[in-house]
Design a protein around this nucleic acid. Sequence first.
DNA 1: TATAAATTTCGAAACACTTCGAATATCAGA
DNA 2: TCTGATATTCGAAGTGTTTCGAAATTTATA
Lengths: 109, 109
Amino acid sequence: MSRYRNDDAQRYADIFKALSNPYRVKIFMRLASCCIEASPCGSDGQICECVGTLGKDLGIAGSTVSHHIKELNRSGLVKIKRHGQRTECSVDLSVIDLLLEFFKLAEPV
Amino acid sequence: MSRYRNDDAQRYADIFKALSNPYRVKIFMRLASCCIEASPCGSDGQICECVGTLGKDLGIAGSTVSHHIKELNRSGLVKIKRHGQRTECSVDLSVIDLLLEFFKLAEPV
DNA sequence: TATAAATTTCGAAACACTTCGAATATCAGA
DNA sequence: TCTGATATTCGAAGTGTTTCGAAATTTATA
């Protein structure tokens, strides 16, 4: 067990739970992709999308999209920031690094 | 959305759901770690642990450990193989590679 | 200030997950 | 073949998740 810190299990479980729903995975994919494809749309040059555009192609109610984004935010995967009428969302890269480390530790040296 | 294949969302959600429980994360950590720390204990030289040893420090019923391992297996994260009285478990490295790619795509280039 | 747009909160229904102990199954060795 | 060790399946209770539409909130603009 020593390659990992056993105390971190709950933290990782929370993050993976946030990605355990296909709609949330799609939202995450989209946010992660727009860092490259879209031009910066955030208020401070940070790249993000808002709840409305994220829910557009998902075929679920807006209230459900809002709920899913809140879950992603709670886990730390996604940052949200109100700007005017819109809530802008973006992937938090520090959590991505954490997860990359998590799975790198599972690979043989 | 084009850095990712939208159709893969369900597959990823299934894998992350398998890791959305802290006991399953602990089991995964332990299986991932023993590839280095423990000497090979699998029947064919493959490194693994059995249900009993995995559940030892978890403080939950054996039937629950069995259930969690089945979930990990269903998602493809863990291979299981009956050998004698014991069921040997090991991490499937191809899924680890898949997940490393998933999160690498979320990092800016 | 009044209205419209974007989002969140709320309550409810349906469904899925977690965990246990008891019962059952599988297998090695006496 | 009988026994003990290991593991799985089953049924049940409690809890958590998903989704919706309606209502409320927040903010820009007429």
